[in-house]
Design a protein around this nucleic acid. Structure first.
Length: 468
RNA sequence: GCGGGUAUAGUUCAAUGGUAGAACAGCGGGUUGUGGUCCCGUUGACCUGGGUUCAAUUCCCAGUACUCGCCCCA
């Protein structure tokens, strides 16, 4: 029996060589199992390579969502005076440990980091703000008129456990304003994002907070820790951990027992220094001016070390309780450029999670423009017409007519079937008969009617019909 | 890193301790020159490894992937 089992698994890895006649279509007879000599048996233990964990192919059917979002954002980018910057996917690892923070989860356990053959330590970017700041310094953008407004669109990589709304490879579209500390910019950034979601038809809530500058935040942290220490025994395990590692994150906890403690906790707005308070108030005033609804969320803290003063997130309406729900997040990072060795340069930015936005669009069934349809299908019958069709295709294309074809097919039936699926308005049919007569058939796909037209007038005739 | 669920054609799902069916999609044909209806044919799958068993796609264990939640973040 063991023998049989062995045989079986052996068989799995084998493929019977097809005989020649099988290839030429004499199937019924030829497909009978053919006994082959050992030497004729081919090993095919080839396993198709699979996707790397957390990585995804974006198939044609999915493209319309990316296009929809990217188009909307690029229009906004132009409207608000941003220019595009493309940044490398790979950066020196220390860029992120210095910018994002040595102790943050992103840097300590979520980066794809490796050594190049030359021995440099590099990482796939987990976010792009650090790269923007680096580029600002590298290219002396402080010599440009300030503020410098940039946007990017690209892949980010984080080695996290994949789940809903979280992948190891994902797209972020981001805006950055560097070189100016005026609070009107904070407000404008929020307005821009809010407009984006409004324009794609996604109802959202804006969450705003200020986490102050380094000195008032430091002061606040002490107060917060002191308060939480008195409650330590009632905290969840995670919060006990946070108390030492990252006290601001205590405010983020969703555990019920911690929520009660949180209610009594000191709020950062009460500890802001005069400058920070002033800044924040002005930001809110600007938002009020354009009547943008926001939620003052004193528990909103952000996980990246570089943030200062204004921080904000935008959540889908009704999703307040869920955890990885933020569609976009951003804020000021007034210290980042100096931290990376540049001059003291205030800045702020935001990044929008493309996949998360798509997820929500699908969930709400929001209308997304379909791929632009083609108007004319060119069908052909026979070798001479096929040659002629190829040339016809070229001349129609030059005229700016939206055409499509299936030249490799022979039968008219299959070509019309494809034309039907593509949803064209007209199909041009060129066969031997038409070729010798100097005509071509024009078929109205919806009506199912067709007529013969002069081949030389085809461009003119099509243009006329498409205008109707 | 931790916990739950799942793993069968390209897709969505069945069934089964004795190696598996359908629907849709694909390809071909009915009509060698007419699609969106119909009919016929055909391609094509038990995640990997180990255990139990005469026999495992099925039961058990592990791994892996997917998925949902936690941590964290977009």
């Amino acid at each position: 029996m063991a023998k049989e089992k062995k045989k079986k698994s052996f068989k799995k890895n084998l493929k019977i060589k097809k005989t020649k006649s099988a290839f030429f279509g004499v199937r019924k007879e030829a497909d009978k199992p053919v006994v082959l000599a050992e030497s004729e048996i081919v090993k095919t233990s080839k396993k198709t390579p699979q996707l790397v964990r957390g990585f995804k192919d974006v198939l044609p059917a999915e493209q319309k969502y990316f296009k929809f979002i990217t188009d909307a954002l690029e229009i906004l980018a132009v409207d608000y005076g941003f220019e595009k910057i493309d940044l490398p996917l790979l950066e020196e690892s220390n860029l992120f440990s210095r910018a994002v923070g040595k102790e943050t989860d992103i840097v300590t356990k979520e980066m794809f980091t490796f050594e190049t053959p030359g021995g440099e330590r590099v990482s796939l970017r987990p976010e792009a703000t650090a790269s923007v700041a680096r580029a600002y310094i590298n290219h002396g953008m402080l010599n440009l008129p300030q503020p410098v407004k940039l946007y990017y669109n690209g892949l980010m990589f984080r080695y996290e456990r994949p789940q809903s709304g979280r992948y190891r490879q994902f797209n972020q579209f981001g805006f950055e304003i560097l070189g100016d500390k005026h609070p009107v910019l904070d407000a404008q950034m929020i307005i821009l994002c809010h407009n984006f979601f409004k324009e794609i038809g996604l109802p959202v809530n804006v969450q705003v907070n200020s986490i102050g500058c380094n000195s008032c935040r430091k002061e606040y942290k002490v107060q917060l820790v002191n308060y939480y220490k008195t409650q330590k025994s009632n905290l969840c395990d995670d919060c006990k951990e946070r108390l030492n590692k990252n006290p601001l994150r205590l405010l983020d906890c969703k555990e019920e027992k911690c929520a009660i403690i949180k209610e009594e906790a000191p709020q950062i707005v009460d500890w802001l220094c005069d400058d920070c308070k002033n800044h924040f108030v002005k930001v809110l005033e600007f938002l009020d001016e354009v009547e943008l609804p926001y939620n003052l969320n004193s528990n909103l803290v952000r996980g990246l070390d570089y943030y200062t003063n204004t921080v904000f997130e935008i959540w889908p309406e009704g999703d307040e309780k869920r955890s990885q729900t933020a569609l976009c997040g951003g804020g000021r990072y007034d210290n980042l450029i100096e931290l990376l060795g540049g001059r003291n340069t205030p800045a702020l930015g935001v990044s929008i999670g493309i996949e998360r936005t798509i997820l929500k669009i699908k969930e709400l069934n929001l209308p997304v423009p379909e791929r632009a349809k083609r108007d004319i299908f060119v069908a052909q019958l026979g070798e001479a017409p096929r040659r002629k069709s190829l040339a016809l295709y070229e001349s129609l294309r030059k005229e700016g007519i939206k055409i499509c074809e299936s030249f490799s097919k022979d039968g008219l039936k299959s070509q019309l079937e494809i034309a039907g699926k593509l949803g064209v308005r007209f199909t041009l049919i060129l066969g031997q008969k038409e070729l010798s007569e100097g005509t071509i058939l024009l078929r109205d796909m919806e009506a199912g009617s067709q007529e013969t037209i002069n081949f030389n007038k085809v461009v003119k005739e099509i243009k006329r019909r498409l205008e109707q």
